[in-house]
């Protein structure tokens, strides 16, 4: 009477809700602390209309990242993009699951310069539970969620979120958000979203936020990443990766695992692309 094997479409919102419950179950069994963020984990007070996102975002206590990575893989989650290649910030790793879709596991949140473990504690200080498909999941307090959404908007120019949580916020709420932003040492990214970024020209991550929030060439992004790295060791690590091919990105572009020949071809195509970037930048500069 119950045919669980037949293919029936499941609405995205349902998949996300059940997916959050699935991820939380894995985290609970492993004893891993997780905060559910963005999408359908956003408090209705801050959520734009019915925006629920397209994937699941979680922030993980940094010392538990390796453990949760192992447990997710044990339960059918496959790595879709890694910390190294996923974004200029190296903040999240994406996993895909045949039933639940995608989850972004954040080991820190871009724009926050405070030590990730201390930032996790701060973002979880006023946390409360939101129930997904019967499973209690921890979400940050409303002010903490607002700060996360503003910092998120700095990367994608998410107008509706920014309007709702910052531009339309009462003065008292704005003061609370700014206080938290200062405690998280996140003023540069915050200014990239809300205005006044130029006041931070001397900060190491200024150029990165300039490129991310306003756009720029790939080579400009790489230079900004190197400059934003807090230590010499991290700078060298980024520089070492510059000539490597992003195989994950190439796989997603091709829709399959690239052949050795395609990886070699991409390796030689990238300097040409960077050269193209440079020529375009110069042409713009002359105008």
């Amino acid at each position: 009477m119950l045919d669980a094997d037949s293919e029936v479409p499941v609405p995205l919102g349902v998949r996300l809700t059940l997916g959050r419950a699935a991820v939380q179950t894995i985290a609970d069994r492993a004893g891993v602390e997780v905060l559910h963020i963005k999408g359908n984990a956003v408090d209705p007070e801050l959520r734009v209309a019915t925006a629920i996102g397209t994937d699941i975002d979680i922030l993980v206590e940094p010392s538990d990242v390796a453990l949760l990575d192992r447990e997710l893989k044990r339960h059918g989650w496959r790595t879709y993009s890694t910390f190294v290649w996923g974004s200029p910030f190296g903040h999240a790793q994406t996993y895909a699951h045949d039933v639940w879709g995608y989850v972004d596991l954040h080991r820190f949140f871009p724009g926050i310069r405070l030590d990730p473990a201390r930032a996790f504690a701060l973002l979880g200080r006023a946390s409360h539970q939101m129930v997904f498909a019967g499973t209690p999941c921890r979400v940050p307090g409303v002010v903490e969620q607002a700060a996360i959404l503003v910092l998120n908007a700095a990367r994608g120019g998410d107008g509706p979120d920014l309007r709702r949580v910052w531009q339309d916020a009462e003065p008292e709420r704005r003061r609370e958000i700014e206080g938290l932003i200062d405690a998280l040492d996140a003023r540069v990214a915050f200014s990239a979203a809300t205005g006044g970024l130029e006041a931070y020209r001397d900060e190491r991550d200024y150029r990165l936020w300039k490129v991310v929030s306003e756009g720029g060439s790939r080579s400009a992004e790489w230079r900004a990443r190197v400059r934003a790295a807090p230590t010499l060791q991290q700078r060298l690590r980024i520089i070492a990766r510059v000539p490597l091919v992003n195989v994950e990105h190439l796989s997603h572009r091709l829709g399959r695992q690239p052949t050795r020949g395609e990886i070699v071809a991409e390796f030689f195509a990238r300097p040409a692309r960077a050269l193209g970037d440079m020529r375009r930048s110069r042409a713009r500069g002359r105008r």
């Binding site: 349902v14 699935a22 179950t25 059918g76 045949d98 039933v99």
Partner: peptide, 17 residues
């Protein structure tokens, strides 16, 4: 896990489906 939307019940084993 159980989620009910528009009178349709979606029910799944956690965490694997």
């Amino acid at each position: 896990g159980v989620e009910v939307v528009d009178g349709i019940v979606y029910v799944a084993h956690l965490p694997d489906g």
